[in-house]
């Protein structure tokens, strides 16, 4: 299991989700993606993406306008 940190701070929709997809393509089931972003859209967008792709949204934290989204990869066939 690998943890991949993704820094999407300063970018806006749909950039952060694209950063997630790029990391996802190299990831395996069980890996963890930790995304840092400043775009508030990341909260709903990451949930929509996880629901659609059957990956697990583990946690979304917000502090001082920065979001940390943790995703467990479970959707790879």
């Amino acid at each position: 299991m690998v943890t991949v940190n993704i820094d999407s701070r300063g970018t806006a929709c749909p950039g952060p989700l694209t950063d997630i997809i790029r990391a996802y393509k190299k990831a395996s089931n069980g890996d963890i993606l930790v995304v840092m972003a400043t775009d508030p859209g990341i909260k709903a967008d990451s949930k929509s993406w996880c629901d659609r792709t059957k990956n697990q949204l583990v946690d979304v934290k917000e502090k001082n306008g920065e979001y940390t989204v943790t995703i467990k990869i479970t959707g790879k066939s």
Binding site: C13, P14, L17, I21, D45, R52
Partner: peptide, 11 residues
């Protein structure tokens, strides 16, 4: 551009 990139993100 936004819609196409978003749709691609969602597969």
């Amino acid at each position: 551009g936004v819609l196409v990139q978003t749709a691609a993100n969602l597969g």
